[in-house]
C-alpha cells in the first residue's frame, strides 16, 4: 500500500529569474519501505524532501500522503499533519539546546497536547529504546554527535509517524557512528514499521537501504 504518491510534481522558485527545480516528479513509496534519495547539489532533492515533509508547497501535480491529498494547505493544517504523520531527522540534529534530551524528545507530544508528566514518561521510554536513557537529563552540548542523533531519532519516532524523513542523518558523524545510526534506523524501520526516507550523498549509506531513488535535474533518474 502506498504511503506517498507523487504525480507529476512541479516546483518553480521565483528568485529573480524563475528557477524550475522539480520538473515532473512521479514517485510512489510504499508503507514500511526503507529508501534512500541521492542527487547532486541543486538536483532538487531538498525541495522534494520539503514538499514530502509539507514544509513547502508545489505548483503543479498531486501529492497523496497516506491517501490524503496534500495541496495548498494552511500553515496550521500542515503543522498538524506534520506532527501526526512525519518525523524529521536532520544532519545537524536540530535539538533545542536549552532543553535536555528527555524534553527534546517529548516536544512533538507537547504540540499534541499531552501532559508534561505523561509525555516525559513516553520520552524516557523512547530514549531507552535508543539505548541512551542514561543521558535523559543531559543538555545537547553535553552529548556526542551519535547521542544527539539518537535523541533526534527518538524525537522523530515519539509521535508514531508514518514516515521518517532523514536529511543526511549521518552527514556529521564519523564512520563508526554512522554505521550505528544506520543500523538503528534500519531497526526502527523493521520493528516499528515506519517508512524511512533517507537523503544522502554517501553511496555507502544508500547501499544499506532497500531502494535507491536518484534525482537528476528535477526528475527521477533510473533506479
Amino acid at each position: 500500500m502506498s504511503v506517498i504518491e507523487l504525480k507529476n510534481i512541479h516546483k518553480t522558485y521565483n528568485v529573480g529569474a524563475p528557477l524550475h527545480v522539480l520538473k515532473g516528479i512521479n514517485l510512489t513509496i510504499n508503507e514500511g519501505e526503507f529508501v534512500s534519495v541521492m542527487g547532486a547539489s541543486g538536483s532538487g532533492k531538498s525541495t522534494l524532501l520539503n514538499i514530502i515533509g509539507m514544509l513547502d508547497n508545489y505548483d503543479e501535480g498531486e501529492y497523496l500522503l497516506d491517501g490524503e491529498l496534500i495541496k495548498d494547505l494552511s500553515e496550521t493544517k500542515s503543522a498538524k499533519l506534520r506532527n501526526q504523520k512525519i518525523g524529521f531527522v536532520f544532519q545537524f540534529y536540530n535539538l533545542l539546546n536549552f532543553k535536555n534530551a528527555m524534553e527534546n524528545v517529548a516536544l512533538p507530544l507537547y504540540y499534541r497536547g499531552i501532559r508534561r508528566k505523561q509525555r516525559n514518561d513516553i520520552a524516557l521510554e523512547y530514549l531507552d529504546k535508543m539505548g541512551i536513557k542514561a543521558i535523559a537529563e543531559h543538555l545537547p552540548n553535553e552529548m556526542s554527535g551519535g547521542q544527539k542523533q539518537r535523541v533526534a531519532i527518538a524525537r522523530a519516532l515519539i509521535a508514531k509517524p508514518k514516515i521518517i524523513l532523514a536529511d543526511e542523518p549521518t552527514g556529521a558523524l564519523d564512520s563508526q557512528t554512522s554505521k550505528e545510526v544506520m543500523q538503528l534506523l534500519r531497526e526502527v524501520n523493521r520493528t516499528e514499521g515506519v517508512t524511512m526516507i533517507i537523503v544522502t550523498h554517501d553511496p555507502n549509506v544508500a547501499a544499506q537501504t532497500d531502494r535507491l531513488i536518484k534525482i537528476q535535474d528535477g526528475i527521477i533518474g533510473d533506479n
Binding site: 514544509l55 500553515e75 503543522a79 506534520r82 536540530n94 535539538l95 533545542l96 504540540y111 524525537r155 509521535a159
Partner: peptide, 16 residues
C-alpha cells in the same frame, strides 16, 4: 529563528 523552525517542523502551528 532555528528554534522556531524546529518547533514548526515538529508540529507547532503559527498560532502556537
Amino acid at each position: 529563528t532555528q528554534e522556531i523552525g524546529i518547533r514548526r517542523a515538529l508540529g507547532a502551528t503559527p498560532f502556537s
